[in-house]
Write a protein that binds this DNA or RNA. Structure first.
Lengths: 148, 148
DNA sequence: CATTATTATTTTGATATTCAAAGTAGTTGG
DNA sequence: CCAACTACTTTGAATATCAAAATAATAATG
């Protein structure tokens, strides 16, 4: 790698490594100490409105249905999520958040908002667009490596 | 969040989620199928030269010494890493990579290089600097949330 | 309409990752 | 020398994960 590539790689890796960790720390400071980061991401994937099915949420999280099922068991036990059997097709489970789950969702959204605002601090509009372009580039690269 | 914040947040999250997953896929295509992503990151943290101690590597990876110890047991068993007891102070363990571990290190570096190059594709020098600034911003935000 | 196939989800058994706390071994200061 | 400290390892418990088997509901077919 050129020194510049190395430097940017290090920054990407640094940011990458810190993000989960900070989320973990923020979490432990909050009122939701009984949740792991994975569980928070599951709550996020379930989202605010009772619509998605188990399979859809599993797909969004890139885990098998079995993995999700176990994790939903825990979230139900802890009072953050609920299962809602579809009346149309009784095989299907719609997932939803409880009041406590929705509160958690909003707290985590607020954290992400602060993070994004900080990411963009001091950048003007064309600069923001450029950052978006770099992110799109990176996503394109990742998509290309997805299937093969 | 404003629509723009939401869009950039989604891109960050998208990139974030894909990276581990792609690394996992690349890995399974490679000759190192017996390693997990976590183990690769551990190999990376150990680095090419026999210098870092167990504690330093644990700190770099943000895991407890116990976690690292377990993980090093596995890497030693699989032939990627070795423990070198310090002669100066026999409590201290220096970690090193075997030939196989160093090979793995280089393969993973090459992947990162491709990733960074793709991230910066089509950007000129001032644009690259801007992206770096955004990354610095984000890191600054993360650092601020580190200690408190 | 009864049986078979398909679909959605859950359970189970196995392995990995992680932490906190207890344990082991080496060093240092009094 | 012994108490305190430091570096690391082990252990026990929780979560995370998958593949495969199990359950249950619906759809399709003869």
């Amino acid at each position: 790698m050129t020194p510049e590539e190395q430097r940017i790689n290090d920054k990407l890796v640094g940011v990458y490594n810190n993000i989960v960790q900070i989320e973990e720390i923020e979490l432990k400071k909050s009122q939701f100490k009984d949740l792991s980061i994975k569980e928070i991401h599951t709550i996020n994937a379930i989202g605010m409105y009772h619509r998605k099915t188990s399979s859809q949420v599993a797909q969004a999280l890139n885990v098998t249905p079995g993995t999700l099922s176990v994790s939903i068991n825990n979230l139900v036990r802890k009072g953050y999520a609920e299962r809602l059997r579809s009346e149309d097709d009784r095989r299907i489970i719609h997932l939803g958040l409880t009041r406590k789950g929705r509160l958690m969702y909003r707290v985590h959204q607020a954290f992400h908002r602060k993070m994004v605002q900080s990411f963009l601090r001091g950048l003007n509009e064309p600069e923001v667009q450029m950052v978006e372009r770099a992110l799109d580039n990176l996503q394109y690269f990742l998509d290309q490596h997805q299937g093969d």
